[in-house]
């Protein structure tokens, strides 16, 4: 074989290799696509100014007082919606988790009717649920898809942001070490 055959074939092989690797990493669910880094980590959690679910009177003007609600310990903020399948799937785990760490739910663009059916059917792990009807609060928190779960320190600092379904594995490998660190 001549050099002038090897050159184009070589180039072709290199390109094929690169695209192949890219393909495989995408197909294998490369985490970099779903887990975008959040610039809010290490910063104070934005306020939650939301209508509370389950109360007739809108308490829309006041921000949620985390300290008063939870006290001096870390807690979790979970963005969810009744229409989102992974949110349904993660509820059983969140129910277990809520016995250890308090969870505040933010219902993203949800309808009270449907929310009620959802909670009835899958369970309610939330200490409190705020309704983010227009999605503005979610934008403020840098949420780009639900479910998203935030771990907030006792001082109100965002420690972890996890995009996607919350599972026992995720909790054990990502959340638990940080929580233990804070508890010490």
């Amino acid at each position: 074989m001549n050099v002038r055959y090897i050159l184009p074939i070589g180039i072709f092989c290199v390109i094929a290799l690169i695209s192949g690797v890219a393909m495989i990493s995408i197909l294998n669910g490369d985490q970099s696509r779903t887990q975008l880094p959040s610039p809010l980590i290490g910063k104070k959690a934005p306020e939650l100014v939301l209508t509370s679910y389950g109360r007739t009177q809108a308490s829309s003007d006041a921000a949620l007082d985390f300290k008063q609600m939870i006290g001096d310990k870390p807690f979790i903020v979970n963005y969810f919606a009744s229409w989102c399948a992974p949110c349904q799937k993660e509820i059983p785990f969140l129910e277990k988790l809520s016995q250890k760490v308090p969870i505040i739910g933010v219902a993203y663009k949800d309808k009270p009717d449907e929310l009620a059916i959802f909670l009835e059917r899958f369970g309610n792990p939330f200490l409190h649920i705020g309704l983010d009807n227009d999605g503005k609060t979610a934008i403020n928190w840098g949420v780009y898809g639900i479910p998203e779960t935030f771990l907030i320190s006792d001082e109100g600092i965002i420690i972890i942001r996890h995009a996607g379904e919350m599972t026992h594995d995720v909790y054990r490998s990502i959340f638990l070490p940080k929580i233990e660190e804070m508890m010490q």
Partner: peptide
């Protein structure tokens, strides 16, 4: 928006 969502 960069402060909320990052460089991306």
């Amino acid at each position: 928006l960069r402060e909320k969502y990052g460089e991306f």
